[in-house]
Design a binder for these strands. Structure first.
Lengths: 343, 343
DNA sequence: CTGTTAGCGCATTCAG
DNA sequence: CTGAATGCGCTAACAG
């Protein structure tokens, strides 16, 4: 339990600790013979420098912070996996925390990570100008936004081209038959607004459309809201196409509609956004816009490491390409049969 | 970017740094007047102690390490959420990493966390006696195993009572009609073995049963294996009940069976284990054994904090209560209609 | 009650 | 090429 220190090594090797330190960080400055000698006893005790001490002495901690909105969100696992893949390959470690969509929690989170002297921060922020992001700028810690674009040209972000995704879906909706289109805006976030703008601006003119705002994040929320929407927009009598701007909520709609005796897609066609794992496996496979969250994690992590290791570089402002995936929730014949994205 | 230090505060407050230190950690040892004085200027610069320095000086880092098998596993998100809830409530932070089921990665992982001087480790190990767990014991770092029981009476763990879960399912299977029972053992892990033992030991004697071993972890694996099993055990002609020991794989089976024209549950009844979010939403809702992974995370985290804060206590050896959930994959009528666990 | 002193483990000048 | 000295920021005795 007693951690072995550089002094122990130096002592046993009969050299000074400076030499041990060099053997580790700049081996070529040490004569081969002594180097091997020191190395062997480092091996013997499988000694590794105390990271805290290194950090105190001004070295990078090789630890980065990750702040996400919430864990119970399929978004996060793929993101984490992507981040993990590049982070550990570079011998970094990362801490995580969730903001639960609360700006104060988010702020407290990045503060705590800064206290821990992380070398940089990856954050899927509540908004592009949340207090946390402001603090990050003020502080000068390297950071990159995930799943959120920023108007500030100096900040790096990696997000999906939500606008384009919305557009893709609109163009597809233009080919559908219906008497009205309903947009259910799940919650207020930059990414969601982008989807809606893209969608609305590409819809055939003259289409009857209505937009419903809600603050829905979960399956259950969709399940609960569905009847209200069905009622106020008389879905039972008007053939309708719905764009629910997030898969989880969309699936809640589908489940509830089916229970209400509304047939899908005949009576109501429903599309979501994100292409989470469940979307292809649920009762009525969901038409949606797919984005590779795993890649989003990878790219963000790479951008951050780049920024950390090579100092100030150009900010990375990257938009992932969205992809329309038509499944049975909008098209009877539609969709793939197998070979879905492995959930 | 220049972090402000205790010296800065002491200087500006006109006291020594010991006093500042006391104001923070043992305020009652400081005269009210000077305390307020110091406090005000701490506020002014929103100073917080450098955690690295504190750590070096022997204080706990209030950072714990979490090692999971893999992220793209619904298991992990709920666990992380549970852990997060208690960890952040106690002002701790946590780092995560995934072993990807590789003992070397797992070992490297815990080593790296120990290097980072975490106060304790939460680990869902590849096995109860993997090299990583051995190292943990050797090292004397507080740790608790998740989703895995240990034979060593000294080690703490929080897992599901898998044996009992298997038993519950067996007793239910005893009420089903079929000509044979097939157990598909998804992969070799202590938790899975427990399920199978419980299941086998509670099956009605005389039942025709066969066990298939595979190394399947994903939906896709199940999808791929299904036809082989169907073939070798002539499922098309013999009414069969299957216990696939993990939901993801079970859902793969269902999908493939349906594609092959095998009706469920009429021709083949299928049950899984875990009750992941998808299980209630997929084409044919899955009968399964539910365990609260969120609680598993909470309880483990609490146990660890207990161990860290109050030193050596009795090891915590906790088994979560499993719950049988009957849905349509085994019972036509069966299952809930709504009010599922919110995915 | 408060200031002084001495590490904690390591990297980094600066001499030799 | 290598050793001795200094500082990183903070806590913990130990004196006043």
């Amino acid at each position: 339990m007693k951690h072995i220190t550089i002094d122990d090594i130096a002592h046993e090797a009969g050299v000074s600790k400076s030499t041990v330190s060099r053997v580790i960080s700049r081996p070529n400055l040490v004569k081969e013979k002594t180097r091997k000698q020191v190395l062997s006893i480092i091996e013997k005790y499988s000694y590794t420098p105390n990271v805290l001490a290194q950090g105190l002495a001004g070295m990078p901690t090789k630890n980065i912070g990750v702040v996400v909105d919430e864990f119970p969100n399929n978004f996060y696992i793929d993101m984490a996996d992507g981040i993990d893949s590049v982070i550990t390959a570079n011998n970094y470690t990362f801490q995580v925390m969730s903001s639960r969509w609360r700006p104060e929690r988010e702020l407290a989170g990045i503060r705590s990570m800064i206290k821990n002297r992380v070398d940089g921060i990856l954050i899927a922020p509540v908004s592009a100008d949340s207090p946390a992001v402001m603090e990050l700028k003020r502080f000068g810690v390297p950071f990159v936004l995930m799943n959120c674009q920023s108007a500030d040209p100096a900040v790096s972000f990696v997000s999906c081209d939500n606008y384009k995704g919305g557009a893709l879906l609109a163009e597809y909706f233009n080919t559908l038959e219906h008497e009205q289109i309903i947009i259910v805006s799940v919650f207020d976030h930059e990414s969601v607004r982008g989807r809606i703008r893209g969608f609305e601006e590409h819809l055939k003119t003259g289409t009857v459309r209505v937009t419903r705002y809600s603050n829905a994040k979960t399956y259950q929320d969709g399940y609960d809201i569905a009847p209200l929407v069905a009622e106020s927009d008389s879905i039972k009598t008007k053939k309708t196409s719905l764009f629910v701007t997030n898969d989880y909520v969309a699936i809640g709609f589908i489940t509830r509609f089916l229970e209400m005796g509304i047939t899908i897609p005949a009576q109501a066609a429903i599309a979501g956004f994100d292409d989470i794992r469940i979307s292809t496996l649920c009762r009525i496979p969901l038409t949606t816009v797919s984005q590779s969250v795993y890649d989003m994690g990878r790219i963000s992590a790479r951008a951050l490491l780049e920024q950390i290791q090579h100092g100030k570089t150009e900010p990375v402002r990257h938009l992932m390409e969205p992809r329309l995936i038509v499944r049975e929730s909008t098209s009877k014949s539609g969709g793939e049969k197998k070979g879905h994205k492995t959930p």
